[in-house]
Design a protein around this nucleic acid. Structure first.
Lengths: 139, 139
DNA sequence: CCTACATTTGCATCACTGTTGCAAAACAGT
DNA sequence: ACTGTTTTGCAACAGTGATGCAAATGTAGG
């Protein structure tokens, strides 16, 4: 109740630790754009690299955050807005990567359109990433 | 004329070297699914890692191959089927990643649908990657 | 075919991402 | 507060990708 981070961690059956609360708080403060592991590492010095990796894994498994594939070989993470539960994500929105400022954001209102698969293919997940100039960089 | 690899390299103003011909031949033989750097490295032992990276870069710039974002942090590459030229790619097809066999393939007949961007966003590139079970693995 | 110039290769090295095993520290429930 | 479980930090490792430089290779002209 008092602190939203404690609440979220408990609801997801995760032990409430300093590191997890700090990482979660960072996502709550920063929900305009997705965070890379390195962003978290530089914001929260003193927290071990490995702990951050493991925390991101745990949060992803619980459905607190979702990962966004980055073409530069570094995963990005953003808070799930709702509908995601233990084991199953329902983030069917489009992601946007700005080539100018480098930020990745969730376009929560733009949902991934349906595409018909060829005979014999069975789709279980669809990722759509749009690159271009974001609204902030276009001024 | 005689060897398609020589032909393709010359058409793109690339020096014809042993390594480039071998890599290109690998793509020609293997056009059902995309290749990772490591696939090429293990198929063509004796060729330096760095040479492979630089060749993949050169081929991508020339529009011979295109890269496919992989969520596992390893880029995949596949031959461009047409419409791609020096500097500009026109691969608007969907990519499929099989979670069973791990292969990545181009669904050349399935093209990426249009999505309307929110106010202020300017899209220049759209990537769509579908995961699931491919037709071969479903038998 | 040989020479001279430009390009490419291989090697060493580096930076970054992500994983694993293990002992010490922190947490949860009684 | 005590005990058992979970998490953390550390060390080490594997993989991807980039860069600088000297040696090797390719290209074009005669």
């Amino acid at each position: 109740m008092q602190d939203p981070t404690i609440d979220i961690l408990k609801r997801n059956n995760l032990s409430v630790t300093e590191g997890r609360r700090n990482i979660l708080q960072l996502f709550l403060n920063h929900n305009a754009s997705a965070l890379r592991h390195s962003d978290i590492e530089s914001s929260l010095h003193g927290l071990d690299r490995v702990t951050i990796y493991r925390t991101l894994q745990a949060f992803t498994e619980k459905g607190i955050i979702h990962s966004i594939p980055g073409s530069d070989g570094a995963a990005r993470y953003a808070l799930c807005k709702g509908g995601c539960e233990q084991g199953h994500h329902h983030d069917d929105h489009v992601h946007f990567v700005c080539v100018r400022c480098g930020s990745t954001q969730c376009l929560d209102d733009v949902h991934v359109p349906y595409v018909r698969m060829p005979e014999g293919f069975e789709a279980t997940k669809v990722e759509m990433v749009v690159s271009g100039i974001c609204s902030k960089c276009r001024k």
